[in-house]
């Protein structure tokens, strides 16, 4: 147990002293996972809208497939992306292996299913009466879709936050695509793995705490953005439906 207390002390120490190496690792983690989250959201929101708002044969099958992919192990995504971007792979010419960009690609692929699936659920959760009301108010198809997406914003936010959570917490892709190269592709999770392997438990715990701290900042920021989209500033303080 003393490792945990030491870890907390060390975390505070590292944060207060702004230890350059830890800061560099933390920022890289944030940069990679946030980039992956943004790219995945840009892809997932329209994709989920397309699936939700159109009727086609096999729609249910597509949704089941997406939900199945929630469970894809990070190492399997890592492996597949590795094969794609390794020197001899079809995307090898891009030179993405062992780069942060390659890690962003991997994490994006990893979290698109969960984001898309949750956004489909979010859109489906909007009352059918809302859709009818919008049409009756004279909305074009696009106007209707935009308003429904806005109406589902809190639930969509949930999907995006979970996507970010999965990205920043994963080790498989970061390790296999990034390679845990010190100063280049080492992120918090790979650093924790390494330090733990070396028996450096307090540092590992400190890095874990820093990871959660970053997550806190990102989640709060995402909430602020979502609320400001609809001038719901009162809800930040915990209004109804918040």
């Amino acid at each position: 147990m003393s490792e945990i207390i030491q870890g907390i002390e060390q975390a505070l120490n590292l944060i207060i002293t702004m230890n350059p190496e830890v800061m560099q690792i933390a920022f890289l983690s944030l940069y990679i996972s946030l980039s992956a989250t943004i790219i995945a959201a840009i892809i997932s929101i329209p994709l989920a809208g397309l699936i939700h708002f159109s009727e086609f044969a096999g729609k249910r099958a597509v949704i089941i497939l997406i939900q199945t992919l929630y469970s894809v192990p990070t190492v399997v995504v890592g492996l597949v992306i590795y094969l794609l971007i390794s020197k001899s792979g079809p995307l090898g010419f891009l030179g993405l292996l062992f780069t942060p960009q390659g890690m962003i690609l991997g994490q994006t692929v990893l979290i698109i299913p969960i984001m898309t699936g949750l956004i489909i659920s979010a859109l489906g959760g909007v009352d059918k009466g809302i859709s009818d009301t919008l049409i009756a108010l004279g909305a074009t198809t696009w106007q209707k879709i935009i308003e429904i997406v806005k109406e589902a914003r809190y639930a969509i936010l949930g999907g995006v936050v979970l996507g970010f959570g999965r990205a920043i917490a994963e080790v498989g892709v970061a390790m296999m695509i990034g390679g845990n190269i010190r100063g280049e592709t080492r992120v918090l999770t790979t650093a924790i793995t390494l330090e733990t392997g070396m028996g450096n438990f307090p540092l590992s715990i400190a890095l874990g705490i820093i990871l959660l701290f970053i997550a806190l900042i990102v989640v709060v920021a995402l909430h602020l953005i979502t609320y400001s989209l609809s001038r719901d500033s009162a809800q930040i303080l915990g209004g109804p439906n918040g």
């Binding site: 009466g129 009818d132 009301t133 919008l134 009756a136 004279g138 308003e147 109406e151 609809s230 001038r231």
Partner: peptide, 30 residues
């Protein structure tokens, strides 16, 4: 043609925003 009509449903569905914005939707769409 639909934009020349107004409709009130049995179960009123309001969007999760202010009253003013709810009332303004029809104008915004037009």
């Amino acid at each position: 043609i639909r934009r020349r009509m107004g409709m009130v449903f049995q179960k009123p569905a309001v969007l999760n925003t202010t009253v003013a914005e709810n009332v303004a939707f029809g104008l915004k769409f037009r």
